[in-house]
Design a protein around this nucleic acid. Structure first.
Length: 222
DNA sequence: AAGTGATCATAG
DNA sequence: CTATGATCACTT
């Protein structure tokens, strides 16, 4: 029951709009998938389900989900108020070979060019299968949003370039933050050390903070 | 209760 | 391990 990839933006949006108000159980049944009791061991389940329903390319390539449409797909858990319940993962952060890397050439910049947000009820009190999908939002950062993202990205990347990756915490950045992104805290990858040498650090990823995504949704639906 | 750091499943 | 999809769960 795998869907074909939408041929154009209009078709993608049409499919996304048709999911609004539908429960995850209905989407799962439609795709022959079993709904897990909770997401503890299936943290990416909702995202994978929506990808399947919308016909996103499978695989784990570091690129947009709908490359031919220039669209990145993101499901976002929201509470009964419409406020995001979690930060949004964007991409892995490069910790080495970053000399000359600019904001405009970064993976964060490219992925956030155009995002199709799919809000999904996320309160843990609601059984996973009963959670409903919300109204989709096709978003591209405004000039001011882009400016904030660029500032945070440049600040964080400079610290990484200076060999201070291990001193960066989630408190750095106004809208974009750097946090661990690995199987566990023991996972290691190469990074730049204090004296410019190669060292090992826990892999990191870029995440959008809740206040930022909340504004994106608020501005669109209010 | 919020926010940060840790973690889970899977494909290649 | 890297990268995808994210949420969990402990600390403050």
């Amino acid at each position: 029951m795998s869907k074909s990839s939408p041929k154009d933006l209009a078709e993608l949006m049409q499919r996304a709009n048709l999911m609004a108000g539908i429960s995850l159980a209905d989407i799962a049944n439609d795709n022959g998938i079993t709904v897990p009791d909770n997401l503890r061991r299936d943290k990416g389940w909702i995202g994978q389900l929506i990808e399947l329903e919308l016909g996103a390319m499978a695989g784990s390539k570091p690129e947009q989900d709908f490359l031919h449409l220039g669209v990145e797909l993101k499901t976002i858990p929201i509470d009964h108020t419409g406020k995001p319940l979690e930060t949004t993962y964007v991409t892995v952060a490069p910790l080495t070979n970053i000399q000359g890397l600019t904001w405009e050439n970064s993976l964060v910049y490219h992925k956030l060019q155009r995002v199709l947000w799919i809000p999904v009820e996320g309160d843990r009190s609601i059984p996973v299968g009963q959670r409903r999908i919300g109204t989709p939002l096709l978003w591209s950062p405004s000039a001011s949003e882009m400016s904030l993202l660029k500032q945070d990205w440049e600040e964080i990347m400079e610290l990484i370039a200076l060999g201070k990756v291990d001193t960066i915490t989630a408190r750095h950045g106004e809208v974009l933050q750097l946090r661990p992104k690995a199987a566990n805290s023991q996972a290691l990858t190469e990074s730049i050390g204090p004296d410019g040498q190669t060292q090992l650090s826990n892999p990191r990823g870029f995440y959008l903070k809740i206040a930022f995504t909340q504004q994106i949704l608020t501005h669109a639906f209010n």
